[in-house]
Simulated assay, not measured.
Amino acid sequence: MKEKLLLAVMLAASFSVGAAEKPLHWGYEGQESPEHWGKLSPDFTLCESGKNQSPVNIHDALRTHHSKLALAFRQGKQQIINNGHTIQVNVSDGNTLSTGKETFTLQQFHFHAPSENEIDGKQFPLEGHFVYQNKEGALAVLALMFQEGEANPQLAKAWQQMPAKIEQAAILTQPVDIKALLPEKFNYYRFSGSLTTPPCSEGVIWMVLKQPVSASDEQIRQFHAVLHHANNRPLQSLNGRVIID
């Protein structure tokens, strides 16, 4: 199961794009839009039938004492890529997330505009997803909301080399300082969910940071101008899931 989940996220998020790879036939518009994902391929059936799907509207969270997030950061080589579905930054080893006894290593981070998850019915203009994986192949996603405000200097480092064409990639001359990109406090909501792209594999730990950071209107428009369409999956039913505060 975990091996399949790892393969799924590699395909869905396009960790690397090779010349011999066939394009993924799903998207956000027309006959390949989210409402059709479950019928596009037998591998995508969870997009339609899954009961623990993401994203969700976070509300009525259960207050409890869940594990604090311990994040470690290491500057290293970063590759930015336009995979046609998002703008993604692949990172080198050394960035980790620990919750209690579990430790996950950051693989990549990417963006959705507008936000996929909502907090008490509020949608944000941009959302970042930091995709982590542990040694067993389980996945955890740390979600960061951006609200319109001052220009974000860390986002600017990535945006200045944002590839305009699909399958274009570049090594960032100024790597994003992930620690500086994230808010000072790591208070978060936690729930069990799925990938928000086909094949919509479940069993993904979601941690949505409560505190948003800023991005300018121009930075948000730059992202839209490159993708040419919104890239957010619609909200999915909780189906009885409990969100932990």
Rank of each mutant, 00 (worst) to 15 (best):
N232G: 07
I166R: 08
T105H: 14
L181H: 04
L69K: 03
Q147L: 11
I87K: 10
L182P: 01
S49M: 05
I243S: 06
Q75N: 09
L238R: 15
F44D: 03
Q107C: 12
Y188I: 05
L40C: 03
L172D: 06
L7T: 10
A215C: 14
S33L: 02
G76K: 11
V89C: 11
G18N: 15
G50C: 09
H59R: 11
W206K: 10
D120M: 05
R74K: 15
I166G: 00
P198E: 09
A8C: 03
Q154D: 05
H85R: 12
A19W: 04
D177W: 07
G100C: 11
V131I: 15
T173M: 07
V242M: 02
I178L: 04
Q219G: 02
D43S: 09
I81K: 12
H85L: 00
G38S: 15
G76E: 13
E136F: 03
A143F: 01
I220V: 12
K165D: 11
K101L: 14
F109A: 06
S192N: 14
I244K: 11
A225N: 15
M162R: 01
F111N: 00
S237L: 11
Q154M: 14
S115R: 02
S194W: 04
N52C: 04
I205K: 04
A158P: 02
H224M: 08
S67G: 11
S14Y: 05
V226W: 01
P34W: 02
P212W: 02
E29Q: 13
A12F: 08
S237N: 11
Q88I: 10
E148D: 06
M162L: 15
L69Y: 09
I220A: 00
L235M: 07
E29C: 07
L195A: 10
P212A: 10
G137W: 00
T64Y: 04
H129Y: 12
V56P: 03
M162F: 08
W26E: 10
I171T: 13
K135V: 14
K122Y: 12
F191L: 15
R241G: 06
P234F: 09
Q88P: 04
A19F: 14
I220K: 06
I220F: 01
Q31L: 09
A70Q: 13
P55W: 06
T99A: 15
F44S: 07
N57I: 00
A225S: 05
M10I: 14
P153Q: 10
G18D: 11
N187D: 15
E184G: 15
H25N: 14
R233S: 01
P163S: 09
R63Y: 08
A215S: 12
I171N: 02
K165F: 09
Q160D: 04
Q31P: 05
F104P: 09
N134K: 05
Q211R: 09
R241Q: 12
P23G: 05
V226L: 10
S192C: 06
S214T: 14
K51P: 02
H65P: 01
F223N: 04
L106M: 05
P175R: 01
